Deep mutational scan, measured.
Amino acid sequence: EVHFESHGEEQAMRVVKMLKKRNLTVEVKVENNKWIITAK
């Protein structure tokens, strides 16, 4: 499981795309203006 924190939507979306290319399940949450990305 991979956790990634991002402060910007643009950066977060880039990471999500990259993770999805690896056929991982990606969950995105926004907490306290931080984008929290979890990949399994």
Results as ranks from 00 to 15, higher is better:
Lys29Gln: 07
Met18Gln: 07
Met13His: 05
Phe4Asn: 04
Glu10Gln: 10
Glu31Asn: 05
Leu19Thr: 00
Met13Asn: 07
Lys34Pro: 00
Leu24Ile: 07
Lys17Met: 13
Val15Glu: 02
Val30Gln: 08
Gln11Cys: 15
Lys17Phe: 12
Lys21Thr: 08
Asn23Met: 08
Glu9Asp: 03
Asn23Phe: 15
Val16Tyr: 07
Lys40Val: 10
Asn33Gln: 06
Lys21Glu: 13
His7Met: 12
Lys21Gln: 10
Glu31Phe: 09
Arg22Val: 08
Thr25Gly: 03
Lys17Glu: 14
Ala39Met: 08
Glu1Pro: 10
Val16Arg: 01
Phe4Ser: 02
Ile37Asp: 00
His3Asn: 06
Leu19Gln: 01
Arg22Thr: 07
Gln11Pro: 06
Glu1Ile: 13
Arg22Pro: 03
Gln11Thr: 08
Lys20Asn: 06
Lys20Pro: 01
Glu27Cys: 13
Ile36Ser: 03
Ala12Trp: 09
Val26Ser: 00
Thr25Phe: 13
Trp35Asn: 01
Leu19Glu: 01
His3Ser: 09
Glu9His: 11
Glu5His: 09
Gly8Glu: 14
His3Pro: 03
Thr38Leu: 05
Phe4Glu: 03
Ala12His: 02
Lys40Glu: 05
Trp35Glu: 01
Met18Asp: 05
Lys17Ser: 11
Asn23Ala: 06
Ile36Asp: 02
Gly8Tyr: 15
Lys17Ile: 15
Glu31Ile: 13
Glu27Gln: 09
Glu31His: 10
His7Ile: 10
Gln11Glu: 14
Trp35Thr: 01
Asn32Met: 05
Ser6Ala: 15
Asn33Met: 06
Glu31Val: 13
Leu19Tyr: 04
Lys34Gly: 04
Lys20Ser: 07
Arg22Met: 15
Glu5Ser: 07
Val28Met: 06
Val2Glu: 06
Glu31Lys: 06
Leu24Ala: 03
Trp35Met: 02
Thr38Gly: 01
Asn33Glu: 07
Met18Phe: 11
Val28Asn: 00
Glu27Trp: 11
His7Pro: 09
Val30Pro: 01
Asn23Tyr: 15
Val30Lys: 11
Gly8Thr: 15
Val28Lys: 00
Lys40Asp: 04
Arg22Trp: 15
Leu19Met: 03
Val26Phe: 06
Ile37Met: 01
Ala39Lys: 01
Glu1Trp: 14
Met13Phe: 05
His3Gln: 11
Lys17Asp: 13
Val26Asp: 00
Lys21Gly: 08
Ala12Met: 10
Val15Asn: 01
Lys17Leu: 13
Lys20Glu: 12
Leu24Gly: 02
Phe4Tyr: 13
His7Asp: 13
Val16Ser: 03
Val16Asp: 01
Thr38Trp: 05
Ala12Lys: 02
Phe4Cys: 15
Leu24Trp: 14
Ile37Ser: 00
Met13Cys: 14
Glu10Ala: 12
Ile37Lys: 00
Glu9Thr: 05
Lys29Ala: 04
Val16Asn: 02
Glu31Arg: 05
Ile37Pro: 01
Glu1Val: 13
Arg14Ile: 10
Val15Lys: 02
Ser6Asp: 02
Leu19Ser: 02
Asn33His: 07
Asn33Gly: 15
Thr38Gln: 03
Gly8His: 15
Lys40Trp: 15
Thr38Phe: 06
Lys29Gly: 02
Ala12Arg: 02
Val28Leu: 08
Ala12Cys: 15
Phe4Ala: 04
Val2Arg: 06
His3Ala: 07
Ile36Asn: 02
Glu27Pro: 00
Lys34Thr: 09
Val15Trp: 11
Ser6His: 06
Asn32Leu: 04
Lys40Asn: 08
Glu9Leu: 14
Leu19Phe: 05
His3Val: 14
Trp35Ser: 00
Met13Tyr: 06
Lys29Trp: 08
His3Trp: 13
Glu10Trp: 12
Asn23Val: 05
Ser6Thr: 14
Arg14Gln: 09
Val2Ala: 05
Lys20Met: 11
Ala12Gly: 03
Ser6Tyr: 15
Lys40Pro: 04
Val16Ile: 14
Leu24Gln: 03
Val16Phe: 04
Glu9Lys: 13
Val30Gly: 01
Glu27Asp: 07
Phe4Gln: 02
Ile36Pro: 00
Thr25Met: 12
His7Arg: 09
Trp35Ile: 06
Met13Gln: 07
Val2Thr: 07
Val30Tyr: 14
Lys29Phe: 09
Lys17Cys: 14
Lys40Ala: 08
Lys20Thr: 10
Lys29His: 10
Lys40Thr: 12
Gln11Ile: 10
Glu5Arg: 06
Lys34Phe: 08
Glu10Leu: 11
Ile37Leu: 02
Gly8Asp: 15
Val26Thr: 02
Lys29Asp: 02
Leu19Ile: 02
Phe4His: 03
Lys20Cys: 14
Glu27Ile: 13
Glu5Val: 14
Glu10His: 09
Lys40His: 12
Val16Lys: 02
Ala12Glu: 01
Met18Lys: 07
Phe4Arg: 03
Asn23Pro: 02
Ala12Ile: 08
Leu24Lys: 03
His3Tyr: 14
Ala39Ile: 14
Arg14Thr: 06
Val15Tyr: 08
Arg14Met: 11
Glu27Ala: 07
His7Leu: 12
Val26Pro: 03
Met18Pro: 02
Val16Ala: 06
Val30Met: 11
Val26Lys: 00
Val30Asn: 06
His3Met: 11
Lys21Ile: 10
Ile37Gly: 00
Lys29Val: 08
Val16His: 02
Arg14Ala: 11
Glu9Ala: 10
Lys34Ser: 04
Asn33Tyr: 04
Met13Ile: 08
Val26His: 01
Val2Ser: 06
Arg22Asp: 06
Lys20Gly: 05
Lys34Leu: 13
Glu5Cys: 15
His7Phe: 14
Asn23Ile: 04
Glu1Ala: 10
Ile36Phe: 07
Ile36Arg: 02
